[in-house]
C-alpha cells in the first residue's frame, strides 16, 4: 500500500511538510481503521481517504459545527492535548474532526469552523456521506442520534489512533485532563 504524501493537494493540510513521510509500504494490521475505503471531503473541498492519515498518530473526535455545547468543549479538550505535548511530538501528531452533520457541514461550513476555532493546519476537518459516518462512528464506538431540531446527541470521545490506524486509547467525557492521552501518545513508537 502506498500512502499519499505531502505533494498531493488532497492531504497537504493533514500532513505538514515537516512531518516525516511514510516511505515504506506498511501493511495494515487487521485492527486498523484504515482498512475502510470510504471517501471524505475536507474543509478545503478535497477528497480524503482514511489511509492518507497513516504514518503518525492521530487524535480523532466526531463533532458537528452547529453543536452548541459539547463539541466546543471536545475541541478544547483536543487543544489541551496538543498544548500538553512536548514540542518534538507536536508536529508529528495529527488532529481530526469528523462531522456527524452530513447535511449542514459543507466544506464552507467547516472552513468557517476552522477559522472561528483557530485550528492549525495539522488539524483535519472532514465530512462524509451518512452511511460512512455511521460506519466510522460504529468503529470508534461513538453513538449518535439526530433530534427533530437537527441537533445531534452524541458520545463525547477522543480516540487516539496509532500510525497504523489502530485505536490505542480513548478519552471519554468532557473537560478531561489531557494527561493520560498525552502519556499514551508518548508511549507510541516514534514514526
Amino acid at each position: 500500500m502506498v500512502f499519499i504524501g505531502c505533494s498531493t493537494g488532497g492531504t497537504s493540510r493533514t500532513r505538514p511538510c515537516c512531518a516525516k513521510e511514510l516511505t515504506v509500504a506498511t501493511p495494515l494490521s487487521d485492527r486498523s481503521l484504515y482498512q475502510i475505503d470510504s471517501s471524505w471531503t475536507t474543509d478545503a473541498g478535497t477528497t480524503l481517504k482514511l489511509p492518507s492519515l497513516a504514518g503518525r498518530p492521530q487524535v480523532v473526535t466526531m463533532f458537528f459545527a452547529h453543536c452548541e455545547y459539547a463539541c466546543p468543549v471536545l475541541v478544547h479538550d483536543m487543544k489541551k492535548v496538543e498544548a500538553a505535548l512536548p514540542a518534538s511530538l507536536r508536529t508529528n501528531v495529527g488532529f481530526v474532526l469528523i462531522s456527524f452533520d452530513s447535511e449542514r457541514d459543507t466544506p464552507a461550513a467547516l472552513t468557517t469552523y476552522r477559522k472561528n476555532h483557530e485550528l492549525p493546519p495539522n488539524w483535519t476537518l472532514i465530512r462524509g456521506a451518512p452511511d460512512d459516518v455511521l460506519e466510522l462512528a460504529a468503529l470508534l464506538g461513538v453513538k449518535f442520534k439526530k433530534d427533530a431540531r437537527g441537533q445531534f446527541a452524541h458520545s463525547n470521545i477522543l480516540t487516539l489512533l496509532n500510525a497504523g490506524g489502530e485505536v490505542t486509547h480513548q478519552q471519554v467525557g468532557l473537560n478531561q485532563s489531557p494527561e493520560e492521552t498525552v502519556k499514551q501518545i508518548r508511549q507510541l513508537p516514534a514514526p
Binding site: Y69, A70, L134, A137, A138, V142, K143, F144, K145, D147, A153, H154, S155, N156, I157, V172, G173, L174
Partner: peptide, 20 residues
C-alpha cells in the same frame, strides 16, 4: 439494525452523552 449505534444508552453514557 443498520443504525444500532443510535441507541444512546451505553455503560458509559452517563459520562459521555448529553441526552436520554
Amino acid at each position: 439494525a443498520a443504525d444500532f449505534n443510535t441507541a444512546m444508552v451505553t455503560g458509559d453514557a452517563r459520562g459521555d452523552t448529553g441526552l436520554e
